[in-house]
């Protein structure tokens, strides 16, 4: 059964995001230094945190794929990195708007936090072309997993390196010697972080359910109408979930999807 629990997750996400937006505008106090502009913080920072965590999660899924050879981990790694890239773009856009409002510039090249976030984005932006360039699905999954692990390991290293940098203008609001966020702001921030993480989980669930349904439909079409009724597969960056012929799983790989068993 695909998409199990999607309705409950969708409702929870909608409630969480709506409540968070209400808290941001009606409960969180105005920042003494930045004033109303600081409201961007409740979108920008959670999006950036979820993005970086998602890259690490994608790397963990990729490691599980290499360890077990189970295709479901490759699919999960692919989807998590795919949605993290969308979040990364969101983080860059909202950050850029905040920078313009706060510093008067859309982008500041000598600011390590901004540049490092851009580098992480550019690094993971090569993940899709890498997958697309490899036709054999087994090799595609393996090479992509190796890349995801290496790039995922780079994320925390990059984060620590930037935190260690002395010259920065980017604000530090957590665990600083000058004190963190006041209670009400911290509460709204935690709510925002949870809502944006829930939204991420929801988008991943939808994407995984859509991909699995697509492959199941393909397998069903072949069983009902014969192989001639199924259009030949083109080259794709998305993982192949089971198809005899060009994008079939290797003999050593374990079938992880009913569609594979069916075909």
């Amino acid at each position: 059964m695909y998409g199990k629990g999607l309705r409950a997750l969708s409702l929870a996400t909608f409630a969480a995001v709506t409540a968070t937006f209400a808290l941001v505008f009606f409960y969180a106090p105005l920042d003494a230094d930045q004033g109303f502009i600081q409201k961007i913080f409740y979108v920008h920072v959670p999006v950036a945190i979820v993005t970086l965590c998602a890259y690490v999660v994608g790397a963990i899924f990729a490691a599980l794929h290499l360890r077990t050879r189970d295709r479901k981990w490759d699919l999960r790694s692919y989807v998590v990195i795919h949605i993290a890239l969308i979040y990364n773009i969101l983080g860059l856009l909202t950050g850029s708007i905040w920078a313009k409002a706060s510093w008067g510039h859309w982008w500041v090249w000598d600011e390590p936090t901004l540049v490092s976030f851009l580098i992480v984005f550019l690094l993971f932006a090569t993940y899709q072309p890498l997958r697309f360039s490899i036709e054999d699905p087994e090799r595609q999954a393996r090479y992509a997993s190796v890349f995801a692990i290496m790039a995922g390991a780079f994320v925390p290293l990059n984060f620590v390196a930037v935190r260690a940098a002395t010259a920065f203008v980017h604000p530090r609001v957590f665990a600083t010697s000058s004190g963190g966020l006041p209670g009400s702001m911290a509460f709204v921030f935690v709510c925002a972080l949870m809502a944006i993480a829930l939204l991420f989980a929801l988008l991943c669930s939808y994407e995984i359910a859509a991909k699995q349904t697509k492959w199941k439909l393909r397998a069903l079409r072949r069983r009902l109408l014969g192989a001639d009724a199924v259009a030949p597969l083109g080259r794709s960056a998305a993982p192949a979930l089971g198809e005899p012929g060009r994008r079939a799983p290797s003999a050593g790989g374990r079938a992880s999807h009913p569609a594979e068993a069916a075909s």
């Binding site: 106090p29 004033g35 109303f36 409002a101």
Partner: peptide, 19 residues
């Protein structure tokens, strides 16, 4: 709190609209 729709409000609205 007062919602200043001047210079700051424009940027805040832009960030949330983009999201």
């Amino acid at each position: 709190p007062a919602l200043p729709l001047g210079e700051a409000g424009k940027y805040v609205a832009a960030a949330f609209v983009v999201f």
